[in-house]
């Protein structure tokens, strides 16, 4: 049972650069369904992160429209974008970007504090996620005690804490060796499938693409799709 979760129509993005403007994304349209794990690859500077930021309500497009679960967020101002991020989007960053003074458990509980969710339920959810990802024994540890792979797994768990509609990962394996990187991507894929989320992962590593359902290529802000 899959339905359309994300839809981009003719999205473009320009940045002012002194007097001139540079166009980073050109007329990008795409649609992603629940349960779908999509990879984006492309050379550095081609606009992958920018695209992810637009999908993730961190940036608004210059043209075109963005719909998440049927809700058109294109014209949202900063406050509503923040609420979209806290309720509909789960981010996994390149470096895990954990908060240094929070234990693994609290990294996840922070999300429920932001969204003001029930504490008990959230704690159960956090335990289950950490268990799924094989790091429940790290619950009480601080980030500086974790390995790179463990940190990234915590980041994955954090991204799923708010029950997002879409999960976005920007080069989540960049700081890991390929074996651990693959393991992390497998875990993202597993969570996406078992929870029926829509997910986009930007990656440099072609060896990860077999774990994804589709691969989108982006070059100079233009998108090509290959099966």
């Amino acid at each position: 049972m899959s339905k359309e979760m994300l839809r981009l129509e003719n999205v473009s993005k320009e940045f002012g650069d002194g007097d001139s403007t540079i166009t980073i994304l050109k007329n990008i349209s795409l649609s992603i369904n629940t349960g779908e794990f999509v990879a984006i690859v492309g050379p550095s500077g081609s606009g992958k992160s920018t695209l992810l930021s637009i999908v993730g309500a961190l940036l608004t497009p210059s043209n075109g429209s963005v719909m998440i679960d049927g809700e058109n967020i294109t014209a949202y101002k900063s406050r509503r974008l923040t609420s979209v991020r806290s309720n509909k989007v789960g981010f996994i960053f390149q470096s895990a970007n954990l908060i240094p003074y929070l234990t693994v458990k609290d990294q996840l509980m922070l999300i429920s504090d932001i969204t003001q969710n029930n504490k008990r339920e959230s704690l159960n959810k956090a335990k289950k996620l950490l268990n799924d990802l094989g790091i429940s024994h790290r619950m009480k540890n601080y980030p500086n005690k974790l390995s790179g792979g463990e940190k990234q797994r915590v980041a994955i768990a954090r991204a799923f804490m708010n029950d997002p509609d879409i999960v976005l990962a920007d080069e989540p394996t960049a700081s890991l060796d390929s074996e651990r990187g693959r393991k992390v991507v497998e875990m993202i894929s597993y969570e996406v499938k078992s929870r029926n989320k829509a997910a986009i992962m930007v990656t440099h590593d072609e060896r990860m693409l077999d774990l994804c359902d589709r691969t989108l290529y982006i070059e100079d802000g233009k998108m090509l799709e290959r099966a």
Binding site: G56, L58, R79, T82, S83, R85, S86, N87, V89, F91, F93, N97, I99, P100, L110, I111, I114, T115, R158, N162
Partner: peptide
């Protein structure tokens, strides 16, 4: 600042 950036990215607003 970097941490606050992360917080904002995961949905915390300035008020929080």
């Amino acid at each position: 600042l970097n941490q606050f950036g992360i917080l904002k990215a995961v949905g915390a607003d300035t008020k929080y």
